[in-house]
């Protein structure tokens, strides 16, 4: 119940009640989008957005840039580790 799953908003089904159709790995269902539409924002504008879906509600928009930053950091940690390992293996005793 506490684990979310990433899905993409494909259509708005009821703009007044803030309901949308989401595609999660090919499975589509109707979810509530009240937590991912800002006040005054048109619901249509979030079509195509990746969201984290919990128990029938989109609870967060997944931030593409932040995801890339984390992955970039992980990649750098990996590269630095390779270099460290190389340094250690060639270090003088």
């Amino acid at each position: 119940m506490c684990l979310g799953i990433p899905g993409r908003i494909v259509a708005i089904t009821d703009a007044d009640k803030l309901m949308a159709r989401v595609d999660v790995a090919g499975v589509q269902r109707e979810i509530n989008i009240a937590c991912v539409v800002d006040p005054g924002q048109a619901p249509d504008s979030i079509i195509g957005t990746w969201v984290l879906v919990h128990v029938g509600f989109a609870m967060s928009r997944i931030d593409e840039q932040e995801a890339q930053k984390t992955l970039q950091l992980l990649a750098e940690l990996g590269e630095m580790q390779e270099e460290l390992t190389a340094m250690q293996s060639t270090a003088q005793p």
Partner: peptide, 15 residues
Amino acid sequence: NQYSRVVASGGNDAG
């Protein structure tokens, strides 16, 4: 915050 792709520092206002 390691999980910045999902967690905004202020949380979710509507929620």
